[in-house]
Amino acid sequence: MSKKIAVIIKDRQDEAIRMSIGLTLMDDSVDVFLLDRDLVKTKDNELNIETLDEMDIKTYSNIEGCTESAYIPTATMARELLSYDHILPY
């Protein structure tokens, strides 16, 4: 049975993204949540951030106007997270 997995990026962004991509390998649905931050694109993670898109991994932030992620208010994020089978802060 496929699962819904939420990855919350706390501080180690690049490893969190690498893990998020890997989690799709069993056809589970994976989304990435950013609390009080946006994705920061660097030379090292550029390819992985592009891969998030290709793997249909959506990224959400509670900060309005982020360039790399869609905005959702904190209250919505808190509620939405509970719809996932696994919630993995990283």
């Binding site: 009080d36 904190t74 994020m77 808190a78 509970l82």
Partner: peptide, 27 residues
């Protein structure tokens, strides 16, 4: 819904923001 937070390194400000929202409708 029963939600369990495990703080590996002690209470966290960001997690607390989520908890404050979630505890409105959950235990």
């Amino acid at each position: 819904m029963k939600i369990l937070y495990i703080f590996n390194d002690g209470p966290d400000e960001k997690a607390t923001k989520l908890i404050e929202e979630q505890k409105n409708d959950n235990k």
